[in-house]
Design a protein around this nucleic acid. Structure first.
Length: 382
DNA sequence: CCATCCCGCCAATAA
DNA sequence: TTATTGGCGGGATGG
């Protein structure tokens, strides 16, 4: 049922109504909201439709988010329309695996790509090349060993997936001594193999921007500027503090339980980029999407020992957006109910507020991690 | 200008 | 076949 997503009437009575504002529709923000929504105790599965409607975005966007989150281990595909929530605790392992994998397929420097054209450079170090094409996929049940490399394989589609690109991008940081890259460089380095067309690169860069946005929202990377060149670049932050070494302390999981819930259901502001109608009349989406069944919230069977009353709400409200009309009282799951209820009694904050709060959360998280690790942030590969 | 990157068409793929 | 996934790049946005 390809639902045409919900569109709120643009004509909002009274208020100035947001003209548009691209920032409020960014993948980064969406990712933050997504995380806020599912990173809470009791969640063990995520439904794509549910996510799309609760976050107020089209399905397509959810795929983007989910793909990169999966690449980092936070999610795992369970079935059609459904992902398993692994949580932040799964990140360390995932990164470790990526690192191993990356280093492995790096062995021979038998690459010819050391010729770095264009004006760039790479910061300090030597030109370490890396050529990787990874075909991972956990489930080894299938005997598809996938002949490594050989771009000959017809499944070029997969090789261009956002997920793989994300992993390769991360490997770039994990397996190389460069800790800062411009997306243009990354794009060039990550080109699967052939054709280095200006267009191919353009497209690649667009994807990298997408990826960078969500990774940034999780503070895995940070946007900065190259010391010398004013060129914008991204710096790897990784797990703050220490990655592993000795007991793998999934600091995140811990901090997670400590910080616990922070946030309620929020939605990205729903204002479409004004579509310029040929005739001058703006197009208003007629249907106020009456659908959206809020899905049978079989969301987890919270056997959570933790008392439910210990929940706390974030200081923000559900930004506007139609809160899905649940005509009649839903069954069991009242979690959502009181959440929205509580939200109703809260002042209205918007995305900016959320963003700030999230930043603070991360801030706390980082300091906490370093506290536990008792070490400084700088981390290099073994 | 130009760095970002949202939107959503529409093609691969999966049911 | 239809539904689900998700490349891909036009072109708007914001600096």
């Amino acid at each position: 049922m390809a639902l045409p997503s919900l569109y709120a009437a643009v004509m909002e009575s009274g208020s100035k109504d947001i003209p548009y504002c691209r920032k409020q529709k960014s993948l980064g923000l969406l990712c933050s909201n997504f995380l806020s929504l599912y990173n809470r105790e009791g969640v063990e599965t995520v439904g794509l439709d549910d996510a799309a409607s609760r976050l107020g975005v089209e399905r397509r966007r959810i795929y983007d988010i989910v793909n990169v989150l999966e690449s980092v281990g936070i999610l795992a595909r369970k079935a059609k329309n459904r992902y398993t929530w692994k949580g932040f605790g799964a990140i360390p392992k995932a990164l470790e695996d990526l690192k191993k994998e990356g280093l492995r397929e790096n062995g021979a420097i038998a690459d010819t790509s050391c010729s770095e054209k264009v004006s760039d450079d790479d910061e300090d170090d030597t030109c370490s090349d890396m050529n990787n094409l990874s075909q991972n996929d956990k489930s080894d049940s299938n005997s598809l060993v996938k002949s490594s490399g050989t771009s000959k394989s017809g499944d070029n589609r997969k090789e261009k997936s956002l997920g793989l690109l994300t992993q390769n991008f991360v490997k770039l940081f994990l397996c190389t001594d460069m800790d800062m890259v411009s997306l243009d460089d990354a794009a060039k380095l990550l080109l699967g193999d052939g054709k280095h067309t200006s267009m191919t690169t353009r497209t690649k860069v667009r994807r990298l921007y997408d990826i960078a946005n969500v990774l940034s929202s999780m503070k895995f990377i940070e946007k900065t500027h190259h010391p010398e060149t004013r060129k914008p670049a991204f710096r790897w932050l990784g797990l703050n503090g220490k990655p592993d070494n000795n007991g793998n302390v999934d600091s995140m999981a811990l901090i997670e339980s400590r910080k616990r819930v922070f946030g309620t259901d929020l939605t990205n502001t729903n204002t479409k980029r004004l579509k310029v109608a040929e005739d001058g009349s703006q197009v208003l989406k007629p249907h106020i999407s009456t659908r959206i069944k809020l899905e049978s919230s079989e969301n987890e069977v919270e056997t959570t020992r933790t008392s439910v009353k210990s929940y706390q709400f974030g200081p923000f409200a559900p930004a506007n957006v139609p809160k899905v009309g649940n005509s009649h009282d839903e069954k069991g799951k009242q979690v959502v109910d009181w959440e929205s209820l509580a939200a109703t009694y809260r002042p209205q904050y918007h995305n900016q507020a959320l963003k700030d709060l999230f930043s603070h959360y991360v801030e706390a998280w980082k300091s906490w991690c370093s506290e536990v690790a008792g070490k400084n942030p700088i981390q290099l590969m073994s």
